[in-house]
Amino acid sequence: MTDANSGLPDPNADDLDLDLTPASRPGGDSTGGINLRNWLIVGALVLIGGAVMFQALTNARVFFYNVDEAVDQQAELDDRTFRMQGTVVTEPAKANDGTMTFAMSFNGVEADVRHVGAEPSDLFRVGERVVAEGSWDDDGAFRSSQLLVKHSEQYVEDNPDRLETDPGYEPSEDR
């Protein structure tokens, strides 16, 4: 009933601050924190992480080929889907069925592109670097289903003064 039954080594109040060990251990009911909620959190994280890793690895070879490489490896690439980077060199022509045709080049190698799909962003124009996703067609043209514009690290401010000072400047059509 007294100290002997209590399981405590010495109930003397004098050693109160010395005997800290039992209480600083985790509570018996939550040892190691292995409960369902924690497992769910960890599991969800592992799943999401795995999905991201998978995505990353499937795209890991290279995010895109440059036009010259893609032309070089045309035979090996066959009808595989890949991305191709290059600079737009010809004004895109639009057919009635929505197909957009233009030429892209990199390192002096040019390729014809036929794009069927969503409109590229407003930045798309001759001289811009673009990344097209698609595959080589039988006739040697690149069939693109997605057209992304890759912006450079050059940020040029569009202010009216530039008109006089910079002869190379052309105001964009959208203003």
Binding site: L123, H151, E157, D158
Partner: peptide
């Protein structure tokens, strides 16, 4: 600051 010539 003004817009960027391409990105607006």
């Amino acid at each position: 600051s003004g817009p960027e010539i391409a990105m607006r």
